[in-house]
Amino acid sequence: MSRAESLTVRAPSPLWTFGLLRSELVTTFRRWRTLALLGVLAAVPVLVGVAVRIETKGGAPSGRGGDGGGPAFIAQITNNGLFLVFTALAATLPFFLPMAVGVIAGDAVAGEANSGTLRYLLVAPAGRTRLLLTKYVTTIAFCLVATLVVAVSALAVGALLFPLGDLTTISGTQISFADGLGRALLMALVVTGSLTGLAALGLFVSTLTNSGIAAMATTVGLLITVQILDQIPQLHAVQPYLFSHYWLSFADLMREPVYWDDLVKNLELQALYAAVFGSAAWARFTARDITA
């Protein structure tokens, strides 16, 4: 890193931002905590795949699988391993993925404050806005990596345990395997997008406190609260504004033609959450006294 240079230059060069971002990314992804979270996420598809495999080993596919519930698409896994990707995303999106994101986002600023490194970060002429942006981008990068870890692990398990090939969309039409893979990638991106709102919320919470644990717990607590509120039918008037309300809309990508309405609503809502809580985090972080 160009430390000598940055000491002399008062207004940091744009390249400095990338240097900061790179060091942030390396720090975040080298943490044992991050690796453990990714490991847990990678294990979920393995679990689902093995469970479905054992369940259907007798030859008879569990035709009634869809009646009782279970994650979306689970009935189709035995016919096509690619569906394990969709199932795994549907299974991890309500809780595992956002929990991991909550941990990373909550830790972003408060964790630095907690360990007493925040003021040193600010002594280097990063600027608070820039540091905050870097933290947010790092969190989004984690969202993407976490989603891809789930998807890739699911694809590997699906390919190992189940046949692959042309697949039937939920609308009953057939698409080629390549098309299916493309849709799986698109789904992963949409799922990443679905987490950006929560990431901003977590970052805001993180600027409020000096305790990393408190910020993580608050973010994950908020997540659980919102998920519960989204289940109460009497609250249907506010539910469209809860960040998790349209999360499962990524499954609409498996319709033919794709049903965009809810997907677009989801991304709009995430953008709104990112804007509101991102700017709130900025207002808080640039105005507060850094004591740790």
Binding site: G63, R64, G66, F73, A75, I170, G172, A251, R255
Partner: peptide
């Protein structure tokens, strides 16, 4: 097609065939 959460029920009439497909239960 009846749009459901992460599933769909389709009733397709094509020529002499009538197909009903419930993607949730894969029936």
């Amino acid at each position: 097609s009846l749009i459901e959460s992460a599933a769909e029920y389709s009733l397709i009439h094509n020529g002499k065939d009538v197909w009903g497909y419930d993607s949730k239960s894969n029936e």
